[in-house]
Amino acid sequence: MNILKRSFVDSWEHLAKLWRFRSLLIALVGRHLKSRYRGSILGFIWTLLNPLLQITIYTIVFRYYMRFGEIPNYTVFLLCGLLPWQWSVAALAEGASAIVGNSHFVTKALFPAQLLPASVLLTNLTNFLLSLPILLLFLFFTIGASWQILFLPVLIFLQLLFLYGLVLLTASLNVSFRDTQHLVGHMTMFLFFLTPIIYSAQTVPERFRGLLKINPFTIFISSYHALLYDSAVVPLSSWAAMSALSLLFLLIGLLVFERLREGFAESL
């Protein structure tokens, strides 16, 4: 009982400190963003160029070479799933080394360690948000958008909580098990193909749908497709499921991170 109580107090403290150190968090995010493009000629434009180049290749390969014919406006479809997916992958990959790669902060400076994974996540969120205009432009010039798009912030927020839980998990586990960062790379590669990003969930044969459903990313990406591409209503049950998933993963992430936190300074 005591352990349970302490865990919840720790988790609460964890989140409260994120708020208390928000100006440092913002500064860290700013630094990440700046350092990402510092020294490059195109600078910030890369944020827009990266997804554009990527969908160009995907469109060529999947649309024209492999003829995924059933999906109209395939490029828009791709963008809807790919942008939030890119955010997740980048956050998880960078998040795994957030603590290990910044050991000098953890062992020498005095600020809450969760700022490191949190800043990684928020940096990539910013990137995602900055690349959204491309998606919206594509939408407006092809299929048009409906008022469903107003739910987008809610969806992004839920995904943020979900990803924060995952990033906390990878960041803290990677301190004692350096295998984590390698595993994360492979896991995200598997998940990329197991999540309906380059194909639509409807095209998957019935007997494999179960595999699709146990992947927590499916419901998030499908909801992006629904809101933006299909202009459809996301059913209440999906919102409930996503909320539950987000909170569950956030909780697991918080508990594991807080449990392992003591060991950070010693293991690094």
Binding site: L24, A27, L28, S35, H104, F111
Partner: peptide, 23 residues
């Protein structure tokens, strides 16, 4: 303990002081 812990080499002294101060 460790002077300038957390300074980032690619940033200017001014930027680092601001970030360090926040820390």
């Amino acid at each position: 303990i460790e002077l300038g812990a957390g300074f980032h080499p690619d940033f200017t002294g001014r930027e680092n002081v601001i970030l360090g101060g926040l820390m």
